[in-house]
Structure formats: C-alpha cells, structure tokens
Simulated scan of single mutants.
Amino acid sequence: MANQNINSHRTAKEREKMSFPTKFLLGENLIEGNVLDFGCGYGKDVEELKVKGFEVEGYDPHYQPNYPKQKYDTILCHYVLNVLQNQDQAKVLYQISSLLKFGGKAYFSVRRDIKKASFRTHFIHKVKTYQTNVILPFKSIFRNDNVEIYEYQHYSFLNQNKSEVSPFFEKLEPKEQVGELASCFAFRDKFPVSEGHTLVIPKRQVSSYFELSFREQSACWFLVNLIKADLQKEFNPDGFNIGINVDEAAGQTIFHCHIHIIPRYKNDVENPRGGVRGVIPGKKEY
C-alpha cells in the first residue's frame, strides 16, 4: 500500500564525515559516559566517536539490528523521527526513555526544512519515503533553518520532589520510572498488588481520566500497550487487570489521574472469576 512506511531506512545517508548534530554536541562537551547512537544508519558517527575514544554503540533496526541490552549515559537520535509516522515516533521515544540511565541525557535532532508531512519519491532510491515535521516538548538547545536539537531527560528526574507537578513525586521513587512518551509516563507502583504492577500517568495534572483530552487518553493507552509488552517479557504473567479509579467513591486516593496495569498469575488468588467486578465484593461472582 502507498501509505505504508516500509522504506524509512532508505533515508539514511552514507556519510564521509561526522553529522552536524554530533559535531555540535561534541563542541559543547555534551557527549559523555557510555553512548548509544539510536538509529545510527550506516554508523559513521559511531565510527568517528570511537576514534575519539568514546565508549559508543550503534543501533539501527535495519542496518545494525542487535537491540541494546544496557542503559546509557548519552543517547543520540539524529534525523530519525522525521521519517516515522506518529505511532513509530512514540515507540522510539519510549525505547530511548527506557534505554537512558537515570540522570542521563538524550539528544533528538529533527529537520527544520520540511514543510508538510507526505510520502515522496526518494531522489536516489526511487521509492516512496515518508517525511514530516516534528515538534517535541523538550528543551531546545540549538536551531537553525535546517535542524533543531532537543535535550531530553526523564520527566521524573527533572521533577523529582516537585509535589506541585504531581503528588506522585511525594510517593514514588524517581528511579522507578519505566517508560515515557511526550504527554505521559509510567512508574512501578510503590505498593504493588503483584509483581510488575505499574502506573501510567498523564503529565498534565488532572484528577479524573475524563478530564483528559482524547489525544492524552490515546497516548496513555499507547503507553499501556508498550508497558504490557515489556511486563510480558520480564515477568511472563498469565493475565492482566487494567483499571482506573475516578473519585473518592471509586477508591481514588491520589488525585492525579493514573491507570493501573496489574499482572496476574495463576493461583495468585483462590478464585479469580469476576476480575475487576471484585471492586464490589458481593458482585464478583455471578
């Protein structure tokens, strides 16, 4: 189909020298510790950074597909988001958030010379490739007519102990953040019902799920799906309960909207029949 973005890897350039964003970050002494180039393409920046003595790895789903197995102090992501559609952009944000050390920094470089989202024929490869403009809600550290560079750190790192941002920052250990998108983030529950119990929380502080915009709700559910997949890999549960408490009568105790993802395991209760109906015990069995 014409609208399937199957040629995004075709936009990778075979560079003869280091990319401008990496060169800029080097000049500002912003690359430190162990480094990941996420979406590295042919890997020229990785090669050049290694020559300069950096401990660096490259990952690219097409050219270097071995997914990283550790966390990094610095992650580079240059010109990746511009060639992806919305859901794939969100997945990349989630992956980089998950691969970044607490307190580390990621740098997203996006093109600024794209006028509108569209599929167009690549001038070299003669196949349809997608390109779009991207605006991120992170700190911008450089911009010209061709590129903008954003600096990202975990939402929980930037806002730790700030109860005015969310009451959760009084209750949860910031290092327990396990995922993030542009408008929501995820924490392990401080008092878990089961192993892996996780909360998905919108960044905008509202009490009720029904106060969120449809876009915010959609982002939360997209993050729920990503978290569920990771929980399945890590804990291999036999089922899940997904729930939201809205208002005190429904059991809400922290009045910043959040979605519970509760992994379930065989024989974790004597009779699981009825599931979430158990919020009113007498109505659980039917």
Rank of each mutant, 00 (worst) to 15 (best):
N3D: 09
Q4F: 10
N5Q: 15
N7S: 07
H9M: 05
T11N: 01
A12D: 07
K13F: 13
K13G: 14
K13H: 11
E14H: 15
E16G: 11
K17R: 08
S19K: 01
P21F: 06
T22H: 08
K23C: 08
L25V: 09
E28T: 10
N29R: 08
E32C: 10
N34W: 13
L36D: 09
F38Q: 01
F38C: 01
G39V: 11
Y42C: 03
Y42V: 11
G43P: 02
E47W: 07
V51K: 15
G53F: 03
G53M: 04
V56T: 06
G58P: 03
Y59S: 12
H62V: 06
N66Y: 15
P68C: 05
P68Q: 11
Y72A: 06
L76Y: 05
C77W: 00
C77S: 07
H78K: 10
Y79H: 07
V83I: 08
V83G: 00
Q85I: 01
Q87D: 04
Q89L: 12
Q89C: 07
A90S: 13
A90W: 09
I96S: 03
S97V: 06
L100N: 09
F102G: 04
G103T: 12
G104V: 06
R112E: 04
A117G: 12
S118G: 10
F119P: 02
H122A: 09
H122D: 14
K126N: 14
T129G: 10
Q131T: 11
N133V: 08
V134G: 00
P137N: 06
F138E: 10
S140N: 14
N144E: 08
V147F: 05
V147D: 04
Y150V: 03
E151C: 05
S156L: 13
S156M: 14
F157I: 10
N159E: 11
Q160W: 14
V165T: 10
P167L: 15
P167M: 09
L172A: 13
L172I: 08
E173K: 11
Q177W: 14
V178E: 04
V178C: 12
G179A: 12
C184P: 03
A186K: 03
R188F: 15
K190R: 12
K190P: 07
F191H: 12
P192K: 09
E195P: 06
H197G: 03
V200F: 01
P202Q: 04
P202F: 03
Q205S: 09
Q205N: 15
V206F: 04
S208Q: 05
E211C: 02
F214P: 14
R215G: 15
E216F: 07
S218H: 06
A219T: 01
C220A: 04
W221C: 00
F222C: 03
F222Y: 05
F222R: 02
N225V: 02
L226H: 04
I227P: 00
K228I: 01
K233L: 13
P237L: 02
D238R: 04
F240S: 00
G243I: 00
N245M: 09
V246T: 08
V246R: 11
V246H: 10
A250M: 06
A250S: 10
I254W: 06
I254D: 05
H256G: 01
I259P: 00
I259V: 02
K266I: 04
E270Q: 15
G274M: 01
G274T: 05
G275C: 06
V276P: 00
R277V: 08
P281S: 03
K284E: 00
E285C: 05
